[in-house]
Simulated scan of single mutants.
Amino acid sequence: MNVNKKKSFPFRKLAITSVVAIVAIASGVGGGGWYWWQSAIAPVEKNAQPSQELLQVQIPEGASANEIGQILEEAGLIRSITAWKVWTRWQGLWESSGGFHAGTYQLSPQASMADIAQTIWSGKVQQVSFTVPEGWTQKQMANYFEELGWFSAQEFLDATNNIPRDRYPWLPEDIPFLEGYLFPDTYQISVDQRTPEAVIGVMLNHFEASALPVYKNRTGYTDLSLDDWVTLASIVEKESVVAEERARIAGVFWNRLRDNITLGSDPTVEYGLGITQTPDQPLTYAQVETPSPYNTYINAGLTPTPIASPGLASLKATVSPEKTDFLYFVARYDGTHVFSRTLTEHLRAQAKIRDQQDAKQNSTNL
């Protein structure tokens, strides 16, 4: 169905021929003809107990005004296909399918014929929402969409392997999948757009509109590649729980990269092993020592790809980090961290936090 570019529904004044048509119909039903006409174009539920239920209808691609009227009458949304035919002729829509939009609509039987037509004309299709939190990985998104019943997790992951550089030429050349570039936020899409490709498209559009300007307008780290920026921001995202610490954590990582010290980030180990640590089950020494391209305790520099989708705050912090002397930090398990300048201070902080966790565990077991 062709998309009509008009901004509003083209209501027309009642022409003489239209008057004749309406009068002809009215006269054919006796003295109550005018009442019939008013009743036919009125909401179906007008004289009944009001219903809050919305009815879902599917308008197929290329449907004519006549076919749309049949769909609406069968769904119980309009009283008369005859009235619909007269009314759409009056509006100049009878011979043309150019004004109405295909799609799935939720319509109320209480709406008038004009309101229903306006909804379909303007393409106000049924919307659904989805939310991708900051710091989610592609696998978490895939499982989420499968739980929603939109498509399988594997279908989503397969789609993330197809880099749509023809539509998004700014995407780095050598990325194996879209990890990190699927911008986290709450979205609304048409119910008919619940496909992996459509979902990925709206998230990439949002990255282009919101994140890309931050990178292009940065004043520092001008030699930083887009992929390195997103990769480091994803690590900052996974390490940051308290917003006030985000820029400091970014500053620590920049200091370690500058001094050629491994980042030593737990989330990178977790990503490489496909696990998630908890306060009760932290990473073991064996896991930290397990070789992986993503293990930043073993490998210097950044991970091969981002490890999650960073939010705007982490992306900004990565190019505007706090200037600090800190080189280390360790989690307190309350969302905050202890920051240290030397390895000795860091080891001391680790031991103190470990003792506190052991004492807490012992008191719980009593």
Score class of each variant (00 low, 15 high):
residue 253 F to P: 06
residue 207 F to Q: 03
residue 256 R to N: 01
residue 251 G to R: 10
residue 223 D to P: 03
residue 220 G to V: 04
residue 215 Y to D: 08
residue 225 S to I: 11
residue 222 T to Q: 14
residue 260 N to R: 14
residue 227 D to A: 13
residue 225 S to C: 11
residue 259 D to M: 13
residue 232 L to C: 04
residue 251 G to P: 07
residue 258 R to S: 13
residue 249 I to T: 03
residue 204 L to Q: 06
residue 217 N to E: 14
residue 235 I to H: 08
residue 220 G to M: 05
residue 206 H to S: 15
residue 263 L to F: 05
residue 232 L to P: 08
residue 243 A to G: 05
residue 222 T to K: 13
residue 220 G to T: 08
residue 239 E to Y: 07
residue 227 D to Y: 07
residue 264 G to V: 00
residue 211 A to K: 07
residue 255 N to Q: 13
residue 262 T to S: 10
residue 202 V to R: 02
residue 213 P to S: 08
residue 268 T to S: 09
residue 254 W to Y: 12
residue 216 K to N: 13
residue 248 R to D: 04
residue 214 V to F: 06
residue 251 G to S: 11
residue 246 R to N: 04
residue 237 E to V: 10
residue 262 T to R: 12
residue 203 M to A: 06
residue 266 D to K: 00
residue 240 S to K: 08
residue 253 F to T: 12
residue 263 L to D: 05
residue 221 Y to A: 08
residue 241 V to M: 06
residue 222 T to H: 05
residue 239 E to M: 07
residue 219 T to V: 02
residue 268 T to L: 01
residue 242 V to I: 05
residue 238 K to E: 10
residue 212 L to G: 07
residue 215 Y to W: 15
residue 235 I to L: 15
residue 242 V to D: 02
residue 264 G to A: 09
residue 268 T to W: 03
residue 217 N to H: 09
residue 220 G to S: 12
residue 228 D to V: 11
residue 252 V to D: 00
residue 263 L to W: 08
residue 236 V to C: 05
